[in-house]
Design a protein around this nucleic acid. Sequence first.
RNA 1: GCCCAGGUGGCGGAAUUGGUAGACGCGCUGGAUUCAAAAUCCAGUUCCGCGAGGAGUGCGGGUUCGAUUCCCGCCCUGGGUACCA
Length: 935
Amino acid sequence: MEYSFRTIEDKWQNFWAKNATFKVEEQSSKPKYYVLDMFPYPSGAGLHVGHPLGYIASDIYARYKRLQGFNVLHPMGYDSFGLPAEQYAIQTGQHPETTTKENIARYRQQLDKMGFSFDWSKEVRTSDPNYYKWTQWIFSELFDCYYDTTSDKAERISKLISTFEKDGNAFVKAVNDCEIIFSATEWNAMSATEKEGILQHYRLTYLADSWVNWCPALGTVLANDEVINGLSERGGHPVEQKKMRQWSMRIKAYGERLLNDLNTLDWSESIKEQQRNWIGKSKGCSVQFETDDKQHSIEVFTTRPDTIFGVSFLVLAPEHPLVKTLTTDEYSQKVDEYIQTSSLKTERDRQANVKNITGQFIGSYAIHPFTGEKVELWIGDYVLASYGTGAVMAVPCGDQRDWDFATHFKIDIKNIFENVDISEGAYTAKEGTITDSDFLTSLSVADAMTKAIEAIETKGIGQGKTNYRLRDAVFSRQRYWGEPFPVYYKNGIPTIIEAQHLPIILPEVEKYLPTEDGQPPLGNATDWAWDTVNNKVVSNTKMDNITVFPLELNTMPGWAGSSWYFLRYMDANNENAFVAKEKANYWENVDLYIGGSEHATGHLLYSRFWTKFLFDLGYIGVKEPFKKLINQGMILGRSSLVYRNAENKYVSKSKLEGGETPIHVDINFVHNDILDTTAFKNWREEYKNAEFILEDNSTYICGHEVEKMSKSKYNVQTPDELVEKFGADTLRMYEMFLGPLEQSKPWDTKGINGVHNFLRKYWRLFFDAEGNLNLSDGEPTKDALKTLHKAIHKIQDDLNKFSFNTGVSNFMICVNELTDQKCNNRQILEKLTILLSPYAPHITEETWTLLGHEAGSVNYAKFPKFNPEFLVSDNFEYPISFNGKVRFKLEMPNSASKEEVEKAVMTNEKTIHYLEGKEPKKVIVVPGRIVNIVL
RNA sequence: GCCCAGGUGGCGGAAUUGGUAGACGCGCUGGAUUCAAAAUCCAGUUCCGCGAGGAGUGCGGGUUCGAUUCCCGCCCUGGGUACCA
């Protein structure tokens, strides 16, 4: 009987769907385990073979955890708001919702064919009003909170208001960007508008006129991490700076916690490092420099207070507020010109000219706080207004940029490092001895650092301070296809719509483009006003600014919905809460999260931020969303190329003479690099009369290149045709077999036969030569037991280490050995089947029933434990053969000679722990050069 | 520049509390079966050498009885980040 994967896979996929096999409930009797994939954006192209890589790994792990007796939550959903659907809508007029629904249907079909064990009853879609209702709610909770630095958590804004009413804001300890100090009396005298204006400086989400990365081509604002080298991440359009009224998220308030809690996470070092860099904590000190007329003082931030005696000038950002005041008449024209040119520079220009040193002396001086010497004041656009204080003390001997600047403008360089030559460049190492520095002289750099901060603080001209690179995240997008804000404007005051009136449903619009007068697309909506009497959205014509007000026209960014979706899965259909507290407490957080590393600083940082916020308010009991994170590598495409020569003929690879034009050819016409010339000719009109220069054996061999999968390179491999040809189980195992999960690798179907053959061999273990089911019921042979137990041991090890690739190899070894032994023993096959079921669920369900078990029961109730106790029988004696391998540690002094070591290896009797957590078992190591011996 | 990860046959990749390098699969070579093909099975396959033998895990050193594994210095590839004071 042949292995008929199509019949088998259809049968079991239907069975699983009909019986809701993978539906989970909260069960306190079982330990929980939460396995999550980064949910996909449902694009029009459908899934390609790269998508399922992570899903297969997580599915294997989820099924493995179920075998071990865990109650496993393994859901799937869609990040269904996003730009491509909107752009498609702009082009075709088709509503993004329609496109999105079609794409989701296609994705679902493809996912189902892979045999994933998702609990679809918990599906979420970020564009579903029942979902974004709660995204809007979280936004309103952020609006209602501020960050209290005393309790070090988010607190209700009402608490802050009552403090203002009693004491004003002078003694408030809160993260804010409020520049004025007021008393209680002043506060109480303020109008509602003024009060809200103040509160905006404290709220965790707030409106601010901020410089934003404006992308004219996309008609939208982009986050810092969506801009790469001055170009938009999506599409690569130029991005310019523009000031706009935007919603922002005060993520900065959580900077320290986001940094510290990284240490509690089981994430790859590289991702943690990326987040640390992004948060960019630097410890240092602020220092006030008085101007020589004693009228003003300039605050700088430095990480090297120990070099304060090396200061030879100050540099201010051109945008610094004191520049105009401090510029002398003599220099005002030059300074104005410099400010003018640097303001015209886009981010892109600045980056292109990193080596280009520019600056301008402004004519006035500051006084060095310790030496009393005059130091020149300069402006230079290498100093950023947005970081630190917007001014730096320049120490050319200790900072390369300052050195370059000083050298370029011929400013004196003072050396304060003992025995260091700085004629060729700055000395930037944080070690050595300070000299020529008054009270810091002959101290080490580290000691001087402490001493300098002390002196600065004693003098009252500054203090030790910590700076973060992390900036608040802009939260407004000028888009249609996103979550509307639950906000209306009451006489200009942003007002939140109460939770019981949510969701605010995205309105219909005629056009998805910005309006003529530059309003976001929601400006096209005719029914987009808030009636505060009836609490509903009404027609714009009813707007009277007494009871009916305009609604916010921006929508939320893509990361809004994805910042909390892992919580919604726990309780996807709850209409009364974003997640019920008892469910949140049962599932806690994600135990294993699998997805691409491109989200290192975006999604993963924002999710952590929102999780901490929701924790602060007591809605959930965990501080971090994802305990363990695995980043699957990208699967690259393997493009096939044909070569056209000058005479318009197509030249096979070994006949190339150079100068031929390579042309991408659809990979479906190519098998093992051999081109199907007929298919190629029929591909396009232009190839119809193609002529070929063939190899000597009359084939056409294509060239190839490894690059990103893309439609335009005709190298996209969808899973569908492979499932059709080999079955889902083969594809699942093959994707795992390709290599380590975390590594990126080229897609190549060459080896898929090997995996397919393995499954066919496994299938044949159950049947005799005539194709009849043939299972023996006797006791298994020692050889068969040994093979099985070896496999159990290794494959469990592989699963625990997420080495799914070696897991597949070990299955192959096991089945090859059982085939050689002609093993058809029921006990052996039963256990092997359980072992294989996470990898190849369809074929194992089928064989499970062949073994006489109830249909579907391998999932998994009958075997609550999948562990050594269950699988390895206690009484089994391991046969240690001459060729067997047992690992043991040889305890000998390092000085022992080779002969001595060999002698010890040959004769030693060793005690071996053959399985963890069991009594040690004595085995005698057989003479021979055996060092690495495994059971 | 800085940070992180990695460099092993023709290919994807195994093997690290230091212990027979190249598991497993692909590909290739030869053979069996077949009218033939597919499929299947058997043998071989790191390189050099007819051979005995020698070389070999990016390069150069070091520690060790023994190094793909540990240490030092380089080179290269991939990812991240960038005038952050």
